[in-house]
Computed example of a mutant assay.
Amino acid sequence: MNTADKHDYIFGTTGGENRFAWLQGALIGDIQLFVNGIVKGPAGGNLAIPILVNTGMELAAALYTGRTSYMTGRRKAVAEDDVAKFIKDFFPSNAQLIPHVIWDSIRNGISHLFSPKSVKYSGYTVDFMFYVERRTKASHIEIDRTAKYIHININSIEYFQIFERAVSKYEKALRAHDDLQNNFIDAWKSIETHRRDADTDQQKGREIRRLIAAFGSSNSINLF
């Protein structure tokens, strides 16, 4: 592909599919709709917003680094490391110091058990609090050296806005750099063409066989 072809593949500049819009438009747009509902309505969403943001960040990091879980060898994604690179390159201020800590608390804490994951290090406990009630209060970090606690307080709406701006910075870099365009295309193709092989997975294979049998002579059945 030449540069024009790559831009068309990624951004749909000459009538092709705008694949970048899936990240910037569809995914971020969906999160924005959710945030709008929270802003207009009662408090809530303090944990749901970070889950959605981290979903978007995992996709953005895969496209940025050109690595997905469907690839092999050195191109196989290590999501925590790839997201850390995305945060270091596109997030502001002290967030760049602790990308793995932020990711681990949300991805392996909230996403799995709906509770932020705490970390212990050298006698210190690092914990997280996510909030939306105080919408104008910036995310901040506090330390209690006597009790050996570090409190990371994240305004969930601000966290989304920082991610949104990071994607815009990534877009600018993507339009300008050939290597990032190659990464995007390689990662997108691996996602788009991947089909999990259930023939070698006995459990999923049994479920699909039961599903096919459930159709009988019909072409449509209810799911729920």
Rank of each mutant, 00 (worst) to 15 (best):
H7K: 13
T65I: 01
E80T: 12
K85S: 13
K76P: 03
A60Y: 04
R75I: 00
L33K: 14
Y9D: 02
R19N: 13
A77Q: 15
E80Y: 03
F11K: 03
A79Y: 15
A77E: 09
T13R: 00
I28P: 00
N36R: 15
V78N: 09
P50L: 09
A60T: 07
L33F: 04
N54V: 14
F20L: 06
H7E: 09
T68S: 12
G16Q: 07
G41N: 13
G29A: 09
M57S: 05
A62H: 06
A61C: 07
A79M: 15
L52F: 08
G41T: 13
N18C: 10
W22P: 00
T13H: 00
I28R: 13
A61L: 07
D8K: 02
M71G: 02
E58S: 14
I38W: 12
K40N: 15
T3A: 15
V53C: 14
G15P: 05
I10Q: 06
H7N: 12
R75L: 07
V39F: 03
D8I: 09
G44A: 08
V53K: 04
D8F: 04
F20G: 01
T72D: 15
A48Q: 13
N36W: 06
I31N: 01
I49P: 01
G73Q: 06
N46A: 13
F20W: 12
S69D: 09
D30A: 14
Y70M: 11
G66Y: 03
T65M: 09
T3W: 06
L59E: 05
V35E: 11
V53H: 04
I10P: 03
G15D: 08
V78A: 10
A84D: 03
V78F: 10
R19P: 05
A4M: 08
V39W: 01
G56P: 03
N2T: 10
T72V: 13
G73H: 05
I49K: 00
V35M: 11
T65R: 10
F34A: 10
T3M: 14
G37D: 14
L23F: 08
G25H: 12
V83Q: 04
Y64E: 04
F11W: 06
A77N: 05
P50N: 10
G66I: 06
G37S: 12
A43E: 15
T72L: 15
I51F: 05
I38K: 11
R75Y: 08
G56D: 02
F86N: 03
L52Q: 11
R75C: 01
T13S: 10
G25S: 14
R75V: 00
G15M: 12
R67E: 08
M71H: 09
R67L: 02
A26P: 00
L47F: 14
L52M: 12
N54F: 14
N54S: 11
D30N: 14
K76Y: 01
Y64V: 00
G16P: 03
G41P: 08
D30W: 02
R19F: 10
L33N: 09
K40W: 11
D8V: 10
I10E: 05
A61M: 06
Q24A: 12
V35S: 07
K76L: 08
I31C: 07
